[in-house]
Amino acid sequence: MTETLDRPLEHPAGVLPYGAHARGVDHLDLLEAHAIFVMREVAAECRAPVLLCSGGKDSAVLLRLAEKAFRPGRFPFPVLHVDTGHNFPEVIAFRDRRLHELGERLIVASVQASIDQGRVADPGACGSRNRLQSVALLDAIDEHRFDACFGGARRDEDKARAKERVLSFRDDRGRWDPKRQRPELWHLYSGQLLPGEHLRAFPLSDWTELDVWQYVAREAIDLPSIYFAHSRRVIERDGMLLAVSPWVQPRPGERVSEQTVRFRTVGDATCTGAVASEASTLEQIIAETAASRISERGATRADDRFSESAMEDRKREGYF
C-alpha cells in the first residue's frame, strides 16, 4: 500500500507509530493483518479449534500471530504437536520453552502410540514416519473432537498447496478433494461444517519463505537453534545432508562428515535434510533465502521427491 496517511502523525508521548514505516503499511503488515483476521474468524465460527505446532519456524510465527490476535486473553484453542518420535532435541526443547512462556495448553499426539496400538505399521527403526503423521493427527481430531486445525502451510511450498484455499475442508477421513473447494471471496471465510467434517485453516497461505524470515527478524521471534549455522555430523544421501541420529545411520558406502549446516525446514528427522550454510544471523539467512536457487522443500524434504503429486496424494489422505 503506497497510500500514506493524510494528516501528519503527531504521537502523544510514549505512543509509537506502527512498524518501521510510520507513514505507510508494508507487505508484512498486510500479511500479518490477514493472518490475524483468519485466526479470529475461525476461532469465532468453529466450535473446537486447535493450533498445530511442529516446533518449526512457521509454527513459531503462528504462535506469535495467535498472541497478536488474542492477547491479553488466552488462546481460544490448545496447541497440538504431532510427534513422530524422530525429533531433533533442540526442537522439542524449543517447543516446551515456548509453550511454557505462553502458558498455553500443549497436547502431544504420538505416532509411536499409533504404532504401538497397531493403527499404523512400523516403518522400521530408520524408516520415515512423516506420512504416518496423518493417522496420529486424525486420531487426535477424533479424540478431542476438534473441528478446525490451524496449520503453518504456505502456498509457495508446493504446487498442490498453491491450489489450496485458506480454509481447506476435509471429510470424515480427513481427505482433501481439490475439485470440491468452496469459493473463497473477499475476506468472507465460511467455517460452517457438516457432521464429521473438519477444516484446516492456513493463515500463512500468502506468505513466502522470505516473508517468514523477514517477519521473524522484525518481530524478534525465538526459533530452535538448528535454523542457524552450526557444526553437525551428516551423511550425504539422495543429494541431501541428513543429520546422523539414532534413526539415521550410515549405510554401507556412505561417509559421515562434520559440516557447517543449517535447516530450512523442521520435520521428521529421517527425511528432513540440512543445507550447507554459514548463515548464523537472521540478516545472513534473509540474504541467503533471497538468493537461493533451490526451493525450501526441494532442498530439504525427501518425502516430496517420490513423485510429482507427492503432496497432493498425501493431502488426499489427510495430511496437513
Binding site: G14, Y18, V25, D29, A33, I36, F37, R40, R71
Partner: peptide
C-alpha cells in the same frame, strides 16, 4: 492496539 503495541493510528487493512 495490536497485542502489546499501541498505535497512534490504524489505517484500513490492519487487524
Amino acid at each position: 492496539t495490536v497485542a502489546d503495541r499501541v498505535l497512534a493510528e490504524a489505517p484500513a487493512g490492519l487487524s
